[in-house]
């Protein structure tokens, strides 16, 4: 066991980790931050997406020890202290960008990263950026729409509401 220390959602935390302890396990089992989900074991579904030092990563494909000393953000840190949803979260709710909610934390974190890199992405850029985040419920329509809306684009012309 190794003592691992990191900042998670702005708070300093530390805990024990084995070499094989994944960052996702450290967050879920160690810190009780169960918003980060695990949906596959081949690093494809993206439900476990978090930010490490500001970069989008799949927390199931990184060891906790590798995040020692890092700044980690998870979906639990996205809303304001008073519970006010972030712009991205609000857009997902407003445009029905989630159904079962399981992929949603990863989608929110991926969107945050996308909009930081590209504040006004096109539909094609959004779809390409989400290639590492699988949703089985929405057919992606409302996720893409929500992301366009979150980036301040007019989505009223997009069919169906």
């Amino acid at each position: 066991m190794t003592q691992v220390t990191m900042t998670v959602n702005g708070k300093a935390v530390s805990g024990e980790a084995e070499g094989r302890t994944l960052l996702s396990q450290f967050l879920r089992d160690g810190l009780g931050l169960t918003g980060t989900h695990v949906g596959c074991d081949t690093s494809q579904c993206g439900a476990c997406s978090v930010h490490v030092n500001g970069k989008l990563v799949k927390s199931c494909t990184m060891f906790a020890i590798e995040a020692d000393g890092a700044e980690v953000s998870t979906v639990e840190g996205e809303a304001d202290e008073d519970g006010t949803l972030s712009t991205i979260q609000q857009a997902f709710q407003e445009h029905h960008g989630l159904q079962c909610g399981f992929c949603t934390p990863g989608m929110v974190m991926a969107t945050k990263s996308l909009l930081a890199e590209n504040p006004k992405p096109t539909e094609a850029e959004i779809r390409a950026y989400l290639s590492g985040n699988i949703c089985r419920c929405t057919g992606y329509h409302n996720i893409v729409k929500a992301i366009m809306a979150a980036s301040g684009q007019d989505v009223s012309a997009i069919a169906a509401e």
Binding site: G35, V75, L85, G101
Partner: peptide, 23 residues
């Protein structure tokens, strides 16, 4: 009415309660 979903708040904030979240 296209009422916005109330369950979304917990799902969007990582507060869903899925079976694997239970120990």
């Amino acid at each position: 009415a296209s009422t916005k979903r109330r369950e979304d708040v917990r799902f969007l904030t990582g507060n869903g309660n899925y079976t694997d979240d239970i120990n």
